[in-house]
Design a binder for these strands. Structure first.
Length: 261
DNA sequence: ACCTATGTTGATAC
DNA sequence: GGTATCAACATAGG
């Protein structure tokens, strides 16, 4: 789930529901999710503080606090942010066993990073220096210069978080399909026109996914399975492994040269 | 049972 | 440096 659109929704949830509430306790006992911190380190830094802002770049979120420390949050492969959904009374509300990191507020509510797989992350003072520009904000010249280079497949380039932040496996397939570009094309072989088209379609895919609730609402994404068909032309989709990830595309419409439009 | 698959990232090897 | 592969985690499905 968590690609840029899911993370943006999580960020907005924190902004809307968690800012300004006093933190009275922190569960940072999961040493894998809270690495490299020792248990208690994040708790010591945040207890008594209030979150004052929630930011995002690509798939990385961070929250400012009124007393200084910055809390970084990453959803990993299966994480989500939950605010105030604790079954009052139930000793073990459903799902709570997957709460890997929790802020408890003075008013009794809580913010948790709920993640079955534990690939999500909470840490203090996250380093954002290696992240490329956010995929929803990147300018046209910057997109051309960063994405349109290298011999590797353009799909791998899109997913490289140091090149561009926020695009994951599903969003990459969706954007390339919308732009009618072959995922395996060497990134450096795309023309400026093709790069502009890719950026435009990527941004449109991001906006649609944020509106509709996530990347899985993409038009191609629903067909990403054996027997799946292109939503535009009805042709059978092709599958292979590109950039180490399963990749689906329409061989009829996504070709080596640019296409109409 | 055993193998594959899954939204991410980071370490490692060439 | 750029690119590719695998491992980290846990669960689901054929």
């Amino acid at each position: 789930m968590p690609e840029l659109p899911e993370v943006e929704r999580a960020r907005a949830l924190i902004e809307r529901a968690a800012l300004g509430r006093a933190i009275v306790a922190v569960n940072d006992r999961d040493t894998y999710v809270c690495r490299p911190h020792a248990p208690g380190e994040i708790a010591d830094a945040l207890t008594g503080a209030r979150l004052t802002a929630a930011h995002r770049q690509g798939k990385t979120m961070w929250c400012e606090t009124d007393i200084g420390p910055v809390l970084g949050l990453h959803l990993g492969m299966a994480g989500r942010i939950v605010v105030d959904e604790a079954g009052e009374g139930d000793p073990q509300p459903v799902g709570e066993r997957w709460d890997r990191f929790v802020l408890e507020f003075e008013d009794g509510g809580r913010l948790s990073l709920r993640d079955k797989r534990r690939l999500g992350r909470a840490r203090l003072e996250p380093d954002l220096s290696g992240l490329g520009p956010d995929a929803a904000e990147v300018s046209r010249p910057e997109f051309r210069a960063r994405v349109g280079r290298g011999r590797g497949p353009v799909k791998a380039r899109l997913m490289d978080q140091s090149v561009l932040a926020g695009v994951g496996n599903l969003l990459a397939d969706e954007a390339l399909w919308r732009a009618r570009l072959l995922p395996a094309r060497p990134a450096g072989s795309l023309s400026p026109t093709e790069l502009d088209r890719l950026r435009r379609e990527l941004r449109a895919a991001v906006r649609a996914a944020i509106r509709h609730g996530g990347v899985h609402t993409g038009r191609l994404i629903g067909e990403r399975r054996r027997g799946g068909r292109c939503p535009r032309c009805g042709g059978g989709l092709e599958r292979s492994r590109i950039g180490g990830r399963t990749t689906w595309w329409c061989p009829g419409e996504q070709n080596g040269r640019g296409t109409q439009n």
